[in-house]
Design a protein around this nucleic acid. Structure first.
Length: 245
DNA sequence: GCGACAG
DNA sequence: ATCTTGTCGC
């Protein structure tokens, strides 16, 4: 997969400066496009993206997995991954800066260009509308969807708990604007927090995410599979640490 | 000092 | 995210 934006752009500023992070976010968010309606019939492939971490000699390492599925058969058609040292600490609101280097490194190995990417984390549901799903789309140049397992409170606004049945949801409205959606993907489980990433609208994101849920997990299949995959890869790299770098 | 805090 | 055993329930 060819990536237009150069990864080196990510390293052109001081990695631990939150002000620099904010500057980047503010610059990119002006270009967010949330008006594309994407029909499921037009989709051929979808991908999940996730990372796992571990420590070695006091240093942080991570592995990123991207798994591509045929959207309709749900069969895996490609798996790629990347592993390496993690340079940026986790700071709520700036997750993308920590995870993007490995995500881009893995994405470059894709031979298929997925029609849509699902991320483990927020997209537009973010105080600066620049969660990892949104931010990553500027590199991938493909529609992205954010799927978070827990709620990130913005401007002291809580979400309204959706009804306890499959598909029930409540929109997360902050200051009169819809940021995302709390979605009950299965009965008797906690809701997930869905939001647009970029290049797709919220209703399409919801339809796609819901059609990718089965009885295995409350999370869409691509996210679930990459989560399992990163744990497997981590176990491997922990035993073969020298294969990294 | 205390609580909050996507992953 | 990660560290971790058992355990309640379908």
């Amino acid at each position: 997969m060819v990536l237009k934006m150069n990864i080196n752009n990510i390293h052109d500023f001081n990695l631990n400066q939150e002000n620099d992070f904010l500057t980047i976010q503010t610059k990119l968010k002006k270009h967010i496009n949330l008006v594309n309606s994407i029909s499921k019939d037009a989709l051929q492939t979808c991908a999940g993206v996730d990372l796992a971490y571990w420590e070695e000699d006091g240093e942080a390492f991570g592995v990123c997995s991207i798994i591509v599925l045929d959207f309709h058969t749900k069969r895996v058609i490609e798996k790629v991954h990347s592993a390496g040292k993690i340079a940026v600490p986790y700071i709520a609101g700036f997750l993308a800066f920590r995870e993007l280097p490995l995500i881009i490194k893995a994405a470059k190995k894709l031979t298929i260009e997925p029609d849509v990417f699902l991320f483990d984390g927020n997209g537009y549901l973010h105080f600066n509308h620049m969660g990892i799903a949104t931010h990553a789309a500027f590199f991938l140049e493909k529609p992205t969807i954010g799927i978070a397992k827990t709620y990130l409170k913005i401007k002291q606004t809580d979400f309204v708990m959706p009804d306890n049945n499959f598909g029930a949801y409540t929109d997360i409205v902050i200051g009169g604007e819809v940021y995302g959606r709390a979605v009950r993907t299965r009965q008797d489980v906690k809701p997930i927090f869905l939001s647009c990433g970029h290049l797709i609208d919220l209703d399409s994101s919801y339809d796609i995410a819901m059609s990718l849920v089965n009885r295995e997990s409350r999370l869409p299949i691509p996210i679930r599979l990459t989560d399992l995959e990163t744990h497997t890869l981590r176990a491997y790299y922990r035993e073969n640490q020298k294969l990294i770098e």
